[in-house]
Design a protein around this nucleic acid. Structure first.
Lengths: 222, 222
DNA sequence: CCAAAAGTGTTATTGATACACCCATGC
DNA sequence: GCATGGGTGTATCAATAACACTTTTGG
């Protein structure tokens, strides 16, 4: 018992926690998981898990996402490391927070309304979260919103091919503001990051739109 | 022995490592410490240390700096967390990297040329470093250089009062490029972050310059 | 032929850049 | 009186922001 206690104090647990974002119905949404066990049993929380031996932090983050959500190989970046000594009531655990982005179209349908222990929440209707996850998520949202304006990070949320109006809608959904259509198109095409696919989207009931795609997967800064 | 080995694998060590910057003689310099023990005995490394119980990451970083360098209460921000499983040959250790900024004037003089186990290196003349510290430092320099252009982070490197020409020199030393004097002054004064002290610097052999200071300690983004 | 989204240019404003001379002081 | 760094304004260029109508298709 003494020995256990000794190890308890000396040992620092390391987890990764993910703020997984998608956009659907013009709303920025985040994936939350309902905790079944104490502490914070019944609370919603960010998906995550402990770092395993031989695994890099990025690998741990990718694994944690795969375990929870059937999708993998998504855009991911490290956000910040949270290490308040009281953040986990059980023992000392620091967590390396990540942001992950998933195009809604890549998710297995139906991601329907049926309530389960794993759900997408719109970021402006969040419940109280377990641990310090509210702080982490708030920081993640802030970072995502900021980064949208000086990088092409939205790429992580778009399907392979898309209409320019869909791309604009993506920006608008994230920053929660409207953009001028003509200026938006001018600027986007001026970046040189997009290419026409030659195809047209015949799905709508009206004039078909040209479909575009990104020339490369790279996330770059303006 | 088995028990030790078991703990060895399960346990993840957590350290903080600091890229401590200052500017002197128009050169960006970083504080390095020569390792006395294996591994990497005799190699230069970033100052740092293990996270202690009850201590936040920020506190650990402040403490590590104070232990090594007589200065404390400096500007500091978390940079990134490095967790490659092979980065420490002894055991699993992840490190939370920080950037710290210290005005040269706040350092105990003489920080003279005498070689010791703790020295300031110009960032364009760095030796091979221990562990993955070369990667960490490279990333820190990149971040510092970028951040200079969209924030008032240089504040962390300036003395309380300074001439505008000294401030300009600070920018130039970090980004390694020259700036136009008139545009620089115009822009700096336009930020509204500076105030005249009313004093003049009579130290130089020539026309005395007005001394300025920052209105607040806040680091803000443009 | 009507509804709905696609597509397209110009002007005004703002911010960024380039550039050269006089001033105040110490020696 | 000269050497040294301090201090100042304008003109050009580039980027951003504001703004409305025509086109193409399905039904």
């Amino acid at each position: 018992m003494n020995n256990t206690k000794y190890k308890w104090y000396e040992q620092t647990g390391v987890t990764v926690d993910l703020s997984v974002f998608t956009v659907n119905e013009r709303q920025l949404k985040v994936l939350l998981i309902k905790r079944a066990e104490a502490p914070f049993s019944g609370f919603w929380s960010l998906p995550g898990g402990f770092l395993k031996k031989g695994e890099s932090l990025d690998e741990a983050a990718q694994r944690a996402l795969k375990e929870k959500s059937t999708v993998s190989n998504v855009y991911m970046e490290q956000l910040y490391t949270f290490g308040n000594p009281k953040r986990d009531p059980r023992s000392r655990v620091i967590t390396v927070a990540y942001i992950a982005l998933i195009p809604w179209q890549n998710l297995p349908q139906p991601e329907s309304q049926k309530v389960s222990d794993l759900t997408w929440f719109a970021v402006d209707g969040l419940p109280k979260l377990a641990f310090d996850h509210t702080d982490i998520l708030e920081y993640a949202i802030k970072r995502l919103r900021a980064k949208v304006s000086y990088s092409n990070i939205v790429q992580g949320l778009m399907p392979k091919q898309f209409r320019l109006s869909e791309l604009q809608s993506m920006y608008e959904s994230i920053i929660n503001d409207e953009l001028d259509k003509r200026n938006f198109r001018k600027q986007m095409l001026a970046t040189g990051l997009l290419k026409e696919t030659g195809k047209k989207d015949l799905a709508g009931a009206h004039r078909p739109a040209m479909l575009y795609q990104f020339k490369s997967n790279e996330i770059i800064f303006f």
